[in-house]
Structures are given as C-alpha cells and as structure tokens.
Design a binder for these strands. Structure first.
Lengths: 192, 192
DNA sequence: TTCAAAGCCTAACGCTCGTTTTGCAAATCT
DNA sequence: AGATTTGCAAAACGAGCGTTAGGCTTTGAA
C-alpha cells in the first residue's frame, strides 16, 4: 500500500510537470509513463484515466484555497485587513504549489462534464469570498472603485499572474511577495 | 487572388476561435477544415502547416502591440502620462482582438523552434518598453515600489488578464476599461 | 505458510493525428 | 483564346493516441 501511494504521488508530480510545461492535451500517457519509468498500461493501476489525473491535481489545490480562505472570511477583521490576508494567503498557496497552480489556472478546461461543472461552481464560490470582502470595503468607504465585479477581476488577475513569473530560485520570499502585492493593490503605483 | 485572401482570413478566424476555446494541441486540422466547410487537405493550399496558422495569429497581433507602443515611448509625456497611455493602448489592442490575444498569451508556447525564439525576443523587447517607463517613474519619484521587475510583472498581470473576462457584450467600453484600470494601477484600491 | 491483492508488463484494439501525393476544374492572366 | 496558376478533393501514409485484456510476479496480511 505505501508503495502504491508513493507511486501515485510520483505520477501526479510528473504529470503536473508535463501539464504545466506542454499542456494537458499535448501530454500523452506514454510521456508520463516513460518519465515515471513504467509501461503506459501500468498507469491505469493508479488512475482510471488521464482525465482522473487532471482531476486530482485540480481539486487538491482547490481544497487548499478553501482551507486558507474560510478562517479569514469568518474572522472579525476589517475589509482592508481581510483583503491583505486573503491576498497573501492566495499567493502563498500558489507559490507553494506552482505546478499544480499552473494546471489549476490553465488546464482546468480539459476536465470532463460532471467534474467540469463542479470545478466551475467551486471556483465561483471561492471568488465570491473575495467579492464579498471587496463589497464590504466599498460599502464601508475603505475602498475606491464602484464596480465590484470589475475590481474582483483585476484583483484575481494580479494575484493569479504570479504562477507565471515567480521563480522559487528568486530572492523574493512568498510572504514578501504577498506583502508587496498587497501594497500594490491597496496603494497603487503613483505617489500622490 | 481576392478569393484566396478571404479564405485565408476565414481560416485564421476559425482557427483562432478553436485555439482559444480548446487550445492549439486539442484542435485538429480536421476540426478547422470542417468548420471552414472544406476538406482537411485543402487547408494546405493556404498554409504550409498547422504551426504556420499559429504563427500568423501570434505575430499579427504582436505587430499591433508594437505599433501602439512606439509613438508613446517616443513622445515627450511624463512617466505617469506615458504609463496611462500604454495601459489604455495595450488593453485596447487586446479587446479589439480578443481571440488572437488569447492565443497570443496562452498558445504561443506551441510555436516551433525558430519562430519561438523570435517570439520570445519580441515579447521581451515589448516588455522592456514598459520596464523603461516604470524605471523612469521610479527615478523621477512619481512611482512607489522599488523593484522594477516585480512591478512590471504585476502590471502585465493586471492588463493581460483582461482577455479572460472581458465580454464584448458588456457595458464597459474598451476606453472606459482602460481608464478604470489605469486608476487601479496608479491609485490602488484603498482610500487613504 | 498460504493466499489474495497490488503492481506491472506484453500485446493489441480502434481511432485520430498532421501531412503528402495526385489530379481535376475553375478562375486568372497574357 | 490559350496558357497558367489557384483552390479544392480523394485517398492514403506512418505515427501516435487513450485504453483494455490477460497474465506474471511480488507483496503483505491471516
């Protein structure tokens, strides 16, 4: 049993790598198998299909996002503080799962029917958490901007972009990146 | 001749659509041909390969980005004004070529060796334009932030995200979007 | 020690892929 | 009007795809 778990993790790791680098559609089971050091058919001892591998990667990191978000939403912080913590938390999840995050953001669309619907619903629920905080901040007069949806879009664009350019080898730690990103989002670029 | 040009454009349009919706790797020449209303082999009267279709889409919109950027960089505006115009210009190009932009941002990596290198070099040159303006703004004391590279990354994340959520059916015009995005980038979210 | 399960392999299935060859008909040019 | 290029189709190529069936070997529990 522990052997199987290890192998399963190994497959997920290698598949995630490929999915990020070449994309889901351009990655074949034979590619994955060769890198794992196993025959293609053997992968089916661990996963029912190529699609199931994608499911594991996508939904596992989704769980991490929710586990990070929940306590913050339920806390008593003000909108500014909440947003700061959400931003830092969000990009921390991304940075600590760079490959899975890339797959989560770019390859989710290859999920098949039932799981695809589930995925989209989940993502909307997660985004609603941010939406509500932004809304609170606007209502309370802490935040500029009037169009909440527009603002949420911008917010996610800034945050989610991180998986494309963050290098683990770089000198910016995840928390520093979160700090600076929060500053950018809240204070902007210009000095008044 | 004019017949061929029309067909060529039609193919580019349909291919762009597919590449955006399903991705380059998951789109086959047969898919494209069927939608065009032609046999797969006939596509090769207009393009040497599937890869060449991708090249057309990617490099054509690249030209638009440069044509927009050049006069702004050569102008005598201050950094703040330059950045505003660059942001508005950039997202205008995206919004007016939503499909091509999606391919440009997400499918460029499927370009093959010589064009891939050319593409990357081009993109770096384009990004350097933004980099220089940010640098000027920091030097002149107009901009906050100390890490120019980091700032450029955030900037592009905000701007490039637009192709994923902008709906042409929406009520926000391209120029309004540019305006509001510039405000977000420069002033941030929080009211001091 | 027995025995079922887990993990893997060989072989193959039906299918789709990008692309080429060849030829024909219509449009274009001289 | 004749010559030539253009646009398209029919047919096929070799290759790679996801996946399955069946059997062998090792492993871990009783």
């Amino acid at each position: 049993m522990p052997v199987a778990v290890k192998r399963k993790e190994q497959i997920l790791g290698i598949a995630g790598n490929f999915f990020r680098e070449r994309g889901y559609a351009a990655t074949s089971m034979r590619h994955i198998a060769r890198k794992v050091g196993v025959e293609p058919a053997s992968l089916y001892s661990h996963f029912k299909s190529k699609d199931e591998i994608l499911q594991y990667i996508c939904f596992r990191i989704a769980d991490e996002f929710f586990e990070m978000q929940e306590p913050i939403l339920n806390s008593m912080s003000n909108p500014v503080e909440k947003l700061k913590r959400l931003v830092t938390g969000h990009i921390n999840v991304i940075i600590h799962n760079l490959e899975a995050a890339s797959v989560f953001f770019n390859e989710w669309c290859y999920l098949k029917k039932p799981e695809l619907k589930k995925f989209i619903a989940m993502r909307e629920r997660y985004e609603k958490g941010f939406h509500d905080v932004i809304q609170q901040g606007i209502t309370s007069g802490d935040f500029r901007m009037t169009d909440t949806n527009f603002t949420v879009r911008l917010l996610f664009s800034v945050m989610n972009g991180v998986h494309e350019w963050y290098k683990t080898s770089g000198k910016v730690t995840p928390d520093e990146a979160g700090e600076k990103m929060s500053e950018f989002i809240l204070e902007g670029l210009a000095i008044k």
